[in-house]
Nucleic acid binder design. Structure first.
Lengths: 222, 222, 222, 222
DNA sequence: TATTAAACGAGACGGTACGTCTAGTCTTCAG
DNA sequence: CTGAAGACTAGACGTACCGTCTCGTTTAATA
């Protein structure tokens, strides 16, 4: 689970009172509740501990600080993303984009996600935690979607694995980046109309790029 | 100028000592220096004031808080973006995306930009300030690029103004979002190779979407 | 007048706009009003200036600081003390003590007086200002009272001037000190009963001390 | 002890870390040191905390503000007053007055005492604190001195308790007031000569007043 | 009458201290 | 040893005044 805080002394724990498993759950839930009410910058660990009915020491024993706690609290939100088969690549993309936008409409995600990304620009360990808990975890959706499109014959198999990986990363950057920008920066709703327009550009671009895999870039745009 | 902090009583200012213009410049420069050294979360206004050789009150007289100050300090960074004519739409896009990526590689932009976006999710006034100082300000690049592409005959003129505006917003979301996600979340370099791949998808997608302007979505992606 | 603030450049002033005499009056009145409302420690010179309808610079041009301003504002209060002839030394003392107590019951005196005395323990110039504006100024009451008592035959003339001066100082310390302590420290009313008791001790003590002027101290107390 | 700052939650405190007893001592000593160096008005709680090697929060947890802290710091100084038996009422009084004057010669007492008295004119709680910690605490000296004088036959027992209490208060006002006025306002030394003169007046006055207890006031002064 | 020099209001300036808040650690007692 | 409670050090917060300064504007005595 993405929310597992720290394995230190929790695994081998032989002697003494064992750690309360309920505390973890309560703390993460309290963190999300505090994010909703206060946002990231006014969220304090003392307040989270109080909401969770837990002492501050208990919290600090499990998470090194506010950033890591918020990453874990937010990561759980993205685990509910899924990719139901809607019959076509475009429809699949539209579906997952709408789900993603729905999560980003929730205040606990809005507040927390960008803040930890901002913090991660100066904290490599935090960036790794975000990548492991959120980004890489959801990249499965891209891979699954492509596999499904290939099975349908909508896309041809990539010529080599390196290109395939690069393309998957690119798609993820485009999809996640565009949706986040639409929702948080432009602050406009990522509604059906916008999602259709976006998907049309993306799917069209992928087809064009895949077709021009030989390097004659730009030709398809003429 | 994007850095003009507050117009209150500074314009009509007849009576009393006028505000020092040098202070504004020094404060914004000090803010960027502090962002480089400390990042957003460890940046303090007291420290910025000290660096700028200015009293804290002088700073608070001009900006209501850390967020607004950082927005203004970062906004100036993006004013150096330009769109030199490189001969084709794809080349123009690649050029501006590389410039954008270069700015996002600078620590004062990395630290500050995402943090204020995060804060803006709970502060409408701040979001408006970001939009006015950064987002809308740079949207000129999209409009200019499209006009140039139309002049070259690479793109057809949009059928109606509303569609044109929607498309421009979409392009901005995709470009800005993807580059930001690549640089800050994926934390991979937006180098020439990545930019070429991204541009191929975008230009191809635009062509396909423009072609299918009649609403038969997905057709061009089949 | 005790409230004349500073003679610097006000006397010889040939050229230039002369200082407003109304400002002095307004400032001292505003100071007393602020003492009543806020007390010494919360009184600020900016507020006094505002109340007086005067700029801060105007105030600082006349007084070096809060302490000196308050001394002058309070000193005026004590100028209303007088020593009407009530027929006997005891009655005269009772009269002036009651007047003194009445002034100390007014909040502008209570707040200001002890505060500047406290400050004067670390500021010799301030102590001199207090002595000149308040203490020595009111010592006239002691001298006048003794002269009257001698005229009545209640007290014998002092054997030599030095002893006379010492006794006058002692009386002033005892009277002023006791009344201040009663009113401000004990915070009990210096009403008729208390004043009668105090006067009886003082007059009795003076008679005994004068009688035993030969140095056989303690004899009269046996 | 007079220096006990706040009993809140410190007594019953079962749970949680107990308050450091050493901190109290260090803070009061640091306060006196700061009074000596800086005086009351330039004393800051931040500086006191630094001197005491303690965080500001620790200080504010124990005392509500500067006034209360100074009262407690000064109160300890007066606990060293004592009334050794010198054989006669006059000698006893001279002894304690000299001790009192010696304390008032110390800068930590000079600065602090009058300042808190000044503040107490606008703060009833502070006045009560002063009365409890300093005034009433030292009134024992008056009572003890009178008892001793009665035992010696120097004074007759008071006719009723109310009169006795009133007289004790009056003596305290006269003694404390006169010495304070001599030391702080007149700023002259309360040396042996002054003390002898003062004592002669006081003892003589007491004898006269006690003799005329029947109400024929003023008779003894004629 | 015109000049001139100081006083005036307004308010920005560099500072200092305020009293509060939060971070993250430490110390006690209870289970 | 875990956990609740809460005191601890450290330091930033945003505000309030300090006393100084820099403006543009009176205002009287001088020339």
């Amino acid at each position: 689970m993405s929310g597992t805080p720290s394995s230190t002394s929790a695994v081998a724990g032989r002697a003494g009172r064992p750690r309360s498993a309920a505390a973890d759950t309560a703390i993460l839930a309290a963190t999300r509740a505090a994010l909703v009410e206060l946002g990231w910058s006014r969220l304090t660990l003392g307040d989270v501990a109080t909401r969770a009915g837990v002492a501050k020491t208990t919290l600090y024993r499990r998470w090194p600080g506010k950033n890591e706690l918020v990453v874990d609290a937010v990561a759980e939100l993205f685990d509910e993303l899924s990719l139901p088969d809607r019959g076509s690549l475009a429809a699949d993309i539209e579906g997952v984009v709408l789900q993603f936008a729905a999560i980003l409409a929730r205040p606990e995600a809005r507040s927390g996600l960008m803040a930890v990304v901002a913090e991660s620009t100066r904290d490599d360990a935090l960036r790794e935690r975000i990548r492991a808990s959120i980004v890489d975890r959801q990249k499965r959706l891209v891979l699954e979607g492509r596999a499904r499109a290939e099975a349908r014959g909508e896309l041809s198999s990539p010529s080599d694995p390196t290109t395939a990986a690069r393309t998957a990363d690119l798609i993820f950057d485009v999809v996640a980046g565009a949706v986040v920008h639409r929702c948080l920066v432009s602050a406009e709703p990522a509604d059906g109309e916008w999602v259709r327009g976006f998907t049309r550009v993306l799917v069209g671009g992928l087809a064009a790029a895949t077709a021009g895999d030989d390097g004659t870039r730009g030709a398809s745009a003429g």
